[in-house]
């Protein structure tokens, strides 16, 4: 039983570490601000979630477990709020995203942006 808990916790931690590193790589690699935001979204939702769930397997008592749950809920609440506010501020200060197709630019510039 102990071995199962250890192995599954380690597995969750490993997946979380991989997701965090790939989010960082995406942050460096993607071409413009709006696409980089998606890379940060990966580390904010599933990266943090996997690492915190992995830590929950190792928690010695109920209080530690509940604090990890509180941190997970806070992260899931804060992440989308911050990225929405950031995107809205960038859009209001006229930072336009690089889009792929020409027809997209026409379509969006006709509707206020």
């Amino acid at each position: 039983m102990d071995i199962i808990i250890n192995i599954s916790g380690a597995l969750f931690l490993l997946i979380g570490s991989f997701l965090c590193i790939s989010g960082g790589v995406g942050l460096l690699r993607f071409p413009d601000f709006y696409t980089r935001m998606h890379a940060v979204g990966v580390t904010d939702t599933l990266g943090a979630g996997m690492i915190l769930i992995g830590l929950m397997f190792y928690s010695p008592d109920f209080l530690t477990f509940s604090k990890l749950v509180i941190i997970l809920l806070l992260t899931l609440l804060i992440g989308p709020t911050t990225s929405h506010v950031l995107a809205k501020a960038a859009m209001h200060n006229n930072l336009m995203p690089k889009l792929q197709q020409e027809d997209n630019i026409k379509e969006t510039s006709s509707s206020n942006y």
């Binding site: 790939s22 709006y34 889009l99 997209n104 509707s111």
Partner: peptide, 14 residues
């Protein structure tokens, strides 16, 4: 992310 910049197609829509 690992496939690189050629594989993405950023889109803005209402």
């Amino acid at each position: 992310i690992w496939l690189g910049n050629q594989s993405i197609s950023p889109t803005l829509r209402t």
